[in-house]
Design a protein around this nucleic acid. Structure first.
Lengths: 172, 172
DNA sequence: GGAAAGGTGTCTAATAATTAGACAATCTGC
DNA sequence: GCAGATTGTCTAATTATTAGACACCTTTCC
């Protein structure tokens, strides 16, 4: 079981269907047709995943509103994976969504087993947490690489002294 | 000017065209038709960006080989942005590429100005480097969120003591 | 070719952070 | 309501970070 999921879709019938489907793998399934409620709901309780429809206003299929809410969620809860739901095979929307931090992408109509498997995959891969040391080591290596090996410059970008950078490199 | 770019494409004519085009914004343009050479070239000198064709073997259009080399590059040089080049509008390949860490996506045939603009965008946005403190703050907030506020558990996952976590939270 | 500027490796002594360990006071699950 | 976990706070010992300095290499540029 995977905690709590929030499903956002302007179609109440889809939400009902989702509720029954999700009940198999989630302890709690929240739904709303109002994207304005997303932040309120996420503030009230800890939510482990959001399934977000990309088309809210009927007739407006650009996905702009979905992208807007995706950004809002990512900004306030960068740790919560967001899976997008769209009725259209639209490469540009897929690219934009993933570049804005969506964890995955599902097209309507969906296959139930496929949907559940994707959600599971996202949650399983989200469980990997690095220690601060590992995080630090990665970021230091990346920064030094980007400075083409210039340790003085790397230390400055990292906001630490050159000596401290030496120490950390020795240890890691 | 933006340093060094490596262009990988099995079509030598495309590489020649790229060389002239890229010369405008890159100090050095490396090209190869052999993906096996990528790591060797990247080891020999510091490369700031890779432009990677997704279809190497003629007749094999699944993009699997391109994805393979993308993963190889990302694994050995996670800091170097990779832009993909594909002849086909394929949502599945776009999604897979971006999920494997590609910085952007360009379809053949390309518009020269559009291509250069995208490459510039990628390099400009790649310049943002966070200090260790910012990095740490982000990771701590993410981890605490994922532990649903349990500080004892978060500290353990982060590999630090609970008291140190308190200290860091006070400071940041 | 040689001077100037910048980067490296290393040191010291003062300051600040992290640690293990402990404690009573909540909070939670059963 | 009770047991186990979590929290907030403390101490004293250990360890890391800092600013500043120094001689020694590389690059860069005239």
């Amino acid at each position: 079981m995977y905690g709590t999921i929030l499903v956002v879709d302007d179609n109440a019938a889809i939400l009902t269907a989702m509720k029954y489907l999700m009940a198999d793998i989630f302890e709690e399934v929240l739904t709303t047709t109002q994207p304005d409620d997303i932040l309120k709901l996420m503030a009230q309780q800890s939510i482990d995943m959001v399934l977000l429809d990309m088309n809210f206003s009927l007739g407006v299929n650009s996905g702009q509103e979905g992208l807007f809410w995706l950004r809002v969620i990512r900004k306030h809860h960068p740790d919560v994976p967001v899976v997008l739901l769209t009725a259209y095979v639209d490469i540009s929307l897929a690219v934009k969504g993933l570049k804005n931090g969506a964890a995955d992408f599902i097209t309507k109509p969906w296959d139930n087993d496929d949907l559940l498997r994707k959600l599971k995959d996202v949650l399983d891969s989200a469980d990997e947490i690095a220690t601060l040391d590992e995080m630090e080591k990665d970021h230091i290596r990346r920064t030094i690489d980007r400075c083409h090996g210039n340790l003085t410059q790397a230390a400055e970008l990292l906001g630490i002294t050159r000596q401290t950078l030496y120490n950390k490199m020795k240890r890691l």
